[in-house]
Design a protein around this nucleic acid. Sequence first.
DNA 1: ACTTAATTGAGTATATTTTACTCAAATGCT
DNA 2: AGCATTTGAGTAAAATATACTCAATTAAGT
Lengths: 257, 257
Amino acid sequence: MTKFTEENIDTWENTIRISIPQLSINTVIFRFHNMKLQYVAMKLVHGNLWFIPGGYVCQDECVAEAARRNLFEQTQIHDLVLNEFGTFGASDRRMNAKSDGIEQLEMPEDVLEWITNRFVSIAYYSVITDTNAPITASSLYSDAKWLNIEDNYPLAMDHSMIVAEARKALAKDLLSKPLLLSFMPEEFTIPELQKLYEAILGRSIDRGNFRKRMLKSGFLIKTGLVKGNSRQRPPELYHLHKDNYINSLTEDVKLGF
Amino acid sequence: MTKFTEENIDTWENTIRISIPQLSINTVIFRFHNMKLQYVAMKLVHGNLWFIPGGYVCQDECVAEAARRNLFEQTQIHDLVLNEFGTFGASDRRMNAKSDGIEQLEMPEDVLEWITNRFVSIAYYSVITDTNAPITASSLYSDAKWLNIEDNYPLAMDHSMIVAEARKALAKDLLSKPLLLSFMPEEFTIPELQKLYEAILGRSIDRGNFRKRMLKSGFLIKTGLVKGNSRQRPPELYHLHKDNYINSLTEDVKLGF
DNA sequence: ACTTAATTGAGTATATTTTACTCAAATGCT
DNA sequence: AGCATTTGAGTAAAATATACTCAATTAAGT
């Protein structure tokens, strides 16, 4: 959506009427693609900075619902992992009408004032399986893109911090939340799985020990097939045993006694 | 503060003028007292339910600052651990004028309407050392009390859930945040320390292994004194070696490879 | 058909940590 | 002095983590 039609204006007038003011949602949408951890970002039509998806909370809607609705609008997917990981509430946390390129959208004064106010944002992360399914940009924005998390794109506002915190939350949740169900495709290899862990943790892992640990945990089932793609020994394909995987997750941190 | 004087009204009129609407802070204030984990709660003058401390965020104030200000008003202590652990945003999350006993406070209509609106609350927990320092109740409320977390007091709104989540957050943060600096007095014994861990984790710990682990971590320094209070072998007193303790904390979760 | 480069699958040996115990030491009370 | 109770110290076995080695498998090159 790049131009403000009358319909858009009506939609926005309606949004600011039914939403809680000064409170927003932001969601870091992750996927694992080509051995890289990626997240969704988009640009304002006239802007240079990247924004992660966001939205507002309706008066009659709980915050988690709002996050889910927002996520559905962008992915068309219903059943997604959605985890809250923090609040971003700096006193000067607002969109900049000039530098962010909002001014040039020529929106009505009341809408402009509403959306450029100071906002406290509740941050979620979400994980989707690597597919070709298109990601829809939020209104205001041009097309959404997948950015590699290791590349440092210029993000707007505090969105760099939000993405960094989301990655930390991913790492913390790796043993307690069923992230693999969303991250991995139906069939995958252990080396691919290791690359995901390494991308999330930001460090390398011993190959043999990783394999041993994963196989011992009991949620990897051999398909009997191999992934023949290169001139090396082809890795074996596995799929997740969902129940065993869920059961292997643990709420409590290891304390050592 | 139990009656609405003119000064109170002015204060409240001012609060709703300068604060972000529909956004609140709640803080679970913990201490370890008589071998029990306790938290601060207070009652409305005409109410039967307990409330944990809360407050609002000024327009020109970041959320963390607001939590800190709010906490200072109640404890008169500046340098406190303050950790955000979640957002509570149910769509029907509001004070009930009748059952919570707000109506009987006879506050101005606009103030009543403001504070009984739907609020999204950002939750923090905080830890203070066990002392005799008085806790001041927020305005609206009568005196603040320390409640044992294991006793199930009737809490207002979703405050039971907030307290439960705070305790989970405590457990998660036990190895990564310097909670002992706030929880423990200058001198303490290892059995006392174990009781704190058990209260936070909600399970018992093997005595010998706990002692071994704590001593090996290197942040417990013998004072040479013992705590002679009963007809058993008196436990030795220790104090925290702050640097060693801070260094022993770790950001990353144990993954096993 | 054999060699080579690259990577996977499997395994081993050692060090470290966790877990489940035992037992002597210290205290106040009888 | 004997008793009940809890602390301090330690040990042995089990489980886990860490650092490796080496054969197996594939496609490309010769």
